[in-house]
Design a protein around this nucleic acid. Structure first.
Lengths: 188, 188
DNA sequence: CGGTCTCTTGACGGAGTTCAAAGCTAGTGG
DNA sequence: CCACTAGCTTTGAACTCCGTCAAGAGACCG
């Protein structure tokens, strides 16, 4: 658990043992049961979460009362609602555990202090943010180019892991297809 | 021009006069004519651009040979192809001046050096990257929720500036509508 | 003026949604 | 170990939004 986080930091920056200890001491271990909410729509997001094990989804409820999934995240991913966290505004999405999920989480206040004390962390989170930009752009780029069928095939092929662990109707929602139409696609 | 950049830095961090001079000395002034390319598909993106004046679009050509616009940027915005720049991979998009455009640009190599010498810049670009995440998520979030008509109305109302300076068919492309259908929408 | 770039019109077709209903499946309690 | 229920997936028919194609009308520029 501790080494899992440490390995992640070491991918991008090098912290001394003492520095990492200081960082780690700011994190809190939390386990969420299936369907527990990490963040509720309307609340201000106070944490960044590093997923040790499990699966988180980010979703909102549209005008018609339908759940719309905007993101999945698994082991070794960072999750938060960037907008709510950075600007300290009410969140427009929910974060929910799809499975039983264990995370290391850090409070915004603690992170702000750490960023001042250990400037290398600025670089770390800059890179994390840039990678997020790249990931989001890739996703929506692909998304706009391809039709539903190809989106689904790509999803299954590219992240088979998710296809196993997540019910179909959630995949449909994430791909912005109705479950009914996805059903059609899987037939033919 | 110099103060325009300085003001932008000061929004997020405070640099001493000497530090800013060092930073500024790494930037180069460039003016592009209408239709000039700042970055061509297939090239590796070597610069971040800060727009002093003008209007840039980011686009690619799809399978059918149609231009697809993924982004507009104007005065006081940063532009680059994040993926190509950060990972030093061939770009999948073009950056082009829609009007005559003046920018301050910085090379990746020079920026990398600056980031080491002036760690405050790490914070600056972390925030810029986070803001980009927020902007992209807002855009595509809105995008997925709303139909073409509302997307167009929102675009005109929200950024009337662009609606003035950019031909309709580019707006259509950006909103992922055909020019023909946009024409329909504007009628009714 | 002639050409190129931009915007509009209308007929048609297709991808994907909606609605209503039924079939499956797995977990739960008796 | 069976029965029941809630959660998940499938079906099919009607409908809608939006793209495609082909053509024409302005508008701007040399």
């Amino acid at each position: 658990m501790k080494t899992q986080l440490q390995n992640y930091f070491n991918r991008h920056i090098s912290l001394t043992e003492a520095q990492f200890e200081e960082v780690y001491s700011c994190f809190e271990i939390k386990t969420y049961q299936k369907k527990d909410l990490l963040l509720r729509e309307g609340e201000v997001c106070q944490h960044k979460y590093f997923i040790i094990d499990g699966l988180i989804r980010s979703y909102y409820i549209d005008d018609k009362g339908t759940e719309k999934i905007t993101q999945f995240a698994i082991e070794n991913w960072w999750v938060t609602n960037t907008e709510s966290f950075a600007l300290q505004r009410p969140s427009n999405i929910n974060l929910q555990a799809v499975e039983e999920t264990t995370v290391l989480r850090i409070k915004k206040d603690d992170l702000d202090v750490l960023l001042v004390e250990i400037p290398a962390l600025e670089k770390f989170f800059r890179i994390v943010a840039e990678n997020m930009v790249i990931a989001i752009q890739r996703r929506y780029g692909f998304y706009m180019k391809m039709n539903s069928k190809i989106r689904y095939e790509h999803f299954v092929e590219w992240i088979p892991d998710f296809a196993q662990r997540v019910p179909l109707y959630m995949i449909a929602s994430y791909l912005d297809i109705t479950p009914e139409y996805l059903s059609q696609l899987r037939k033919g």
